[in-house]
Computed example of a mutant assay.
Amino acid sequence: MSITLAEEITLLSLDDESGEAKERQSAAWAVAGGILLELALAGRVSVAGGRLAVTDEDPTGEALLDGRLAAVAAWTGRRGRAPKVTEWLTKDQAKAPAATVARLCERGLVVEETRRVLGLFPVRRYPEADGAVERELRERLRAVVLDGAAPDERTAGLIALLHGAKLHRIAFPGEPRKQVAARMAELAEGRWAGEGVREAIRDMQAAMAAVTVVTIVAAAG
């Protein structure tokens, strides 16, 4: 089964048994970035000078991507000039995760459960229903990051997003973070895609790094 980068990030971030999202805020930015990167790889959007433009509104055939493509096209169309990538990510990181989880439910990879906290407040969780896709994903990441295999374009992009959002621990639980981060940084900076896609990655990494710093400062306060 072929799933999107956003869905791969979401699978990594959801606890298999409880269905609770780990590192929720950072993962949300990575999910929004994953959708945008996928659209860039598909030739539907472009990034130049840190600004985002829709270059082709034709559907990709993937419901999750097409829904977000329509949203970004409508949003950019209302603005006087091409918006910054960071503006779109700031807007979409609150919405993209829900759309992505819904797609995973449709595929039968996770199942939605509603539980009540303190017997009062309903909380949705998404435990694993079919673990085969996530197992293959983790094996592919391990082969590239830990074993030195050459990545394909999408896997390299996924690693760049995970590194930019500092999601090293959910991607490689139990592995030395310093070693993992160094290898992921090397892959993120590699020349595995065209300059437009690499620029999109750099902008997304900058946005995710900024929000991570804000989150840490807020937590410390």
Rank of each mutant, 00 (worst) to 15 (best):
L158G: 10
T215R: 15
V85W: 12
A74V: 00
E23W: 15
W75Y: 14
K91L: 14
G19P: 14
T155H: 11
G190C: 01
K22E: 09
E7T: 14
V101Q: 11
G131I: 04
V211N: 12
T114S: 10
E186L: 13
A32L: 01
V180P: 13
S46E: 12
A42H: 14
S46H: 05
K22G: 05
V133C: 08
P59T: 11
I9T: 09
G61R: 06
A27Y: 11
P151L: 11
S2K: 12
G174C: 06
L137C: 03
A32K: 02
A53W: 07
W75L: 00
A160F: 11
D130Q: 08
A200E: 14
A129F: 00
L65D: 01
R138T: 01
A30Q: 02
A171H: 07
G190N: 03
P83T: 07
T212C: 14
S26Q: 15
R125A: 09
A156I: 02
E8A: 14
V101T: 12
G131L: 00
G194N: 09
G164C: 00
D15W: 08
V45W: 00
R116N: 03
I3M: 05
R79F: 01
A82N: 06
L167W: 06
L89H: 02
L64Y: 07
F172V: 08
P176Q: 05
R198A: 09
A32R: 02
R198M: 03
G61E: 00
R183N: 04
R191P: 04
A63W: 12
Q179G: 13
V145S: 10
A63Y: 07
A160P: 07
R107I: 00
V197M: 01
L14P: 04
M1W: 04
E139Y: 01
V47D: 05
W88P: 01
